[in-house]
Design a protein around this nucleic acid. Sequence first.
DNA 1: TTTTAACACGAAAACGTTTTCGAAACATTT
DNA 2: AAATGTTTCGAAAACGTTTTCGTGTTAAAA
Lengths: 346, 346
Amino acid sequence: MNKKVTLKQIARELDVSISTVSKALKNSKEISEDTREKVQAFAKLYNYKPNNIALSLKNRKTKTIGVIIPEIVHHFFSKVIRGIELYANNKGYNVIVGLSNESFDKEVINMDMLANGSIDGFILSISKETLLQQDYHHFNETINQGMPIVMFDRVVKEINCDKVVVDDFKGAKIAVEKLIENKCKNIALITTKDYVNVGRYRTQGYISALEEYNIMPQPNLILKVDDESLTEYNLVSLENEIKDLFMGNPEIDGVFAVNEIYAITAMKIARKLGKEIPDDIQVIGFTDGVLSKHAIPGLTTVSQHGQRIGEKAAELLIERIENEYFTDNFQTVVVETELIERESTK
Amino acid sequence: MNKKVTLKQIARELDVSISTVSKALKNSKEISEDTREKVQAFAKLYNYKPNNIALSLKNRKTKTIGVIIPEIVHHFFSKVIRGIELYANNKGYNVIVGLSNESFDKEVINMDMLANGSIDGFILSISKETLLQQDYHHFNETINQGMPIVMFDRVVKEINCDKVVVDDFKGAKIAVEKLIENKCKNIALITTKDYVNVGRYRTQGYISALEEYNIMPQPNLILKVDDESLTEYNLVSLENEIKDLFMGNPEIDGVFAVNEIYAITAMKIARKLGKEIPDDIQVIGFTDGVLSKHAIPGLTTVSQHGQRIGEKAAELLIERIENEYFTDNFQTVVVETELIERESTK
DNA sequence: TTTTAACACGAAAACGTTTTCGAAACATTT
DNA sequence: AAATGTTTCGAAAACGTTTTCGTGTTAAAA
């Protein structure tokens, strides 16, 4: 077993000092060409690579960034991670991933684990529980210790940091306008409870589009899904809520849903009730994941460009890290959405 | 800005030595109760947390594990990561993620970045390109340097390490047997080219099931998809290949596909050709992702239990790390598959 | 020949910990 | 009073780097 070789070992073997070896490997002019070649040859032979941990300690920089997301088995978040990885790697940074699993406690624990020297900065999206409790002390504390944070998607204005967000309002509005232009007269909204900002903004976009066209929003056409009882493996409660929506309002001829699952499920229920898509009901979702693309019929949807969000977040963070002015002029970058039209609309 | 406080600062402030502070914080009996309390109070006040990098350097243990996968925007891989994270976090380990993007070079670069002290061990799944080139020197070198590796899913027998695999053969066989028992007489197979082992084993399972029932495998019913031209955004070549399969062999009444996309696409094409599912054609896929669950009709599929694979891999790795006998008696753990029946079979 | 400059290298500090060992201060036993 | 034991603490080494500064040697200039 060839244990990793260190400067000290090379130095001893070649009968020079550690400093000489270090300098020789960096091609310092201080060292004679003779010794330089000797050292470099030896180092290459034994495949010397400087120890990252020692470098981190010396430089007080780890060249790694911490990412904390609520969930990884999720098309949007994994795309964001891909974007972060891509950009970070190009800049020579590594990425540590932590999952909060939508729990406040796990979010705090994860941040604690990483905030003690392991990383140079955070990229994160807030867990639902934290959003509910509105307890942001852990974010403020880390920022206060001089560690930069970039938030994405689920952000909160109380926190002073760079942010990368989707224009949920506009994305939703454009989608609903599309439905209106496609002659939908009674457009239902399937959304989440209000505490997740993202859902709230999308709801506002829906309302705004209707008002733009002088259509009175109908409360009975708005379904706020109770996702407490909703698990990855149990969709029946969702199905029942949507079924009730359709049965109670047979006039519905358009649906805007704030995520893929709701949209797909709406299509499924509609067809069970004998409605044709897009002839009887047109549907638009949010998030361009695998479901939208492979649904039958293909789901028209609002794409958030997750990867671009990740790249941008990484860019902002690394910029802060390398230019140590993390005190003010924080920016909020808005990544535009895009309506991807498929067969669920006319 | 409250920069992080160190032992040295506490020591200076309290006019004791660094050693005393360190011991006091660890409740060492060496230190008088007086000073212990004083130090602890001060440390708490300033929210002292030991610097992880310094600890890593001292202990020559980083308490983090590196994961390298070909792709993260992928249901199976993200489930595996979730499993790894879950187990690792419980044991106090962090997880660094690297993406090879199916490229040999990126795989090597990623491993190099991490192998120099940043992590204590690797969990990885080999990229397609590496599988093609059959160049495994980077794995052997890291193992040789005393860094343990656990491989999962896409493994290769030439490498001496712990492995966690799915019983692809058995999973496929059971699926095809199910089709046979459901009275399918002409079962097609949609698979990948042979160099990805996983695809090969599934193909063998298909053949074996047929032979078990004395059915002669028909070469024209086996479609090896050319995924060169296949991208995330371009499925037409796949669709055409499958269409040709169905048109050329109208007797097909069952399909076993080695992944979700192939299966879903097969259902889609079949229906376009006027076939009813499951009445005219029954379909079974591999991998229990969102697509299978939300497809209409729901896709019967072979679940691989990605999360369990991740947990098991993390368990094996941490076991090796903490018991430093990474020299022999490597095990290969097989995680059983499970046939999840939905509406695409009778 | 003496002074100065250039060259080649090493010692040591620093990053933040933990831990071993030695030693002062005090208390207890003979 | 002397010997021994206990308590409480600090110095220093170690982990693996980089970098500053000092110094001895040699070559060039006066």
